[in-house]
């Protein structure tokens, strides 16, 4: 329970976050979910109360390994097929690992003129679960897509393999261009941060390490916000965010991140050329 109770005061300021919290507490207090239980109807109602969510399968693709190799580092990618979006402009994208203690892994917020909301990240998976992505259009419509991922134990897997070193590098960032055939590949930002879940044991004290995770990742290009990510404990250690720049954007990349303990880190780079 520690993990969800701790952030209450911080969460209280944002009503939607309070809702997430209640969902998390509800899930933890109920009997352990079996593999067959579908939490999605309840989760959906808690996160998007009273709203209708239709399938986004005609233009959204959610890619995750069917069986994860490492439950603490499960790559997830959400791609949008611009040609099939039929005027839908995405305002936000919520990534949900249904059966994780805190199901919402991240919310990606886009500026209004964003053309390609495709993103990727790495998540922890605590037990066999559906992973959902819900896109909210600027007109308020909601679209969902899901995949099932077989992985377990990702939230309590020990933090890192070399504790001291990780601490020394906290807040370091990398920016790189991923390769893609035929067009400019997405950019990827890596942030050194333990993103502690609150479910990991301290190697020395044998107490749980308090949750300590990236809350916001703001990405600017030429001074203008291009993507703002709200993170949570379901993002992997050393969070990675892949995203696409609006075409023609050449202004350099600045990233500002803030963690749940109020520490903030910045970095800036020129835009890496497409290879």
């Amino acid at each position: 329970m520690k993990l969800v109770i701790r952030p209450v005061t911080r969460y209280a300021a944002k009503p939607w976050r309070m809702r997430l919290l209640l969902v998390a507490i509800g899930l933890l207090c109920s009997a352990p979910a079996g593999a067959d239980d579908d939490l999605w109807p309840d989760l959906k109602e808690a996160l998007f109360p009273g709203q209708t969510i239709v399938s986004g399968a005609s233009f959204m693709h959610l890619t995750a390994p069917e069986r994860a190799y490492d439950a603490a580092v499960v790559p997830v990618q959400i791609d949008f097929d611009a040609a099939r979006m039929d005027g839908v402009k995405v305002r936000s994208l919520t990534l949900i690992v249904d059966k994780n203690p805190v199901p919402v892994a991240a919310v990606f917020h886009y500026p209004t003129d964003n053309l390609d909301p495709s993103v990727g990240t790495r998540v922890r998976v605590n037990e066999y679960t559906n992973v959902h992505a819900v896109a909210e259009a600027t007109d308020g419509r909601l679209f969902e897509i899901a995949v099932f991922v077989k992985a377990a134990g990702g939230c309590s897997a020990p933090a890192n393999k070399a504790p001291g070193e990780a601490e020394a590098h906290r807040g370091e960032m990398r920016l790189k261009r991923l390769a893609e055939e035929g067009r400019d590949g997405p950019l990827e930002i890596l942030i050194r941060h333990p993103n502690f879940t609150g479910m990991q044991m301290d190697q020395l004290t044998r107490n749980y390490i308090p949750a300590d995770y990236l809350e916001t990742i703001d990405i600017r290009s030429g001074g203008k916000l291009v993507l703002s990510v709200e993170g949570n404990i379901s993002l992997s250690e050393n969070p990675a965010i892949q995203f696409r720049l609006p075409t023609g954007e050449r202004g350099g990349i600045e990233v500002g991140v803030k963690d749940s303990n109020g520490r903030s880190y910045q970095a800036a780079w020129p835009i890496p050329p497409a290879s």
Binding site: P65, Y69, P75, G120, R122, K176, L178, G185, S275
Partner: peptide
Amino acid sequence: AKGGTLQEAT
């Protein structure tokens, strides 16, 4: 080095 993803690597 050539910008490959984790998925491509695995």
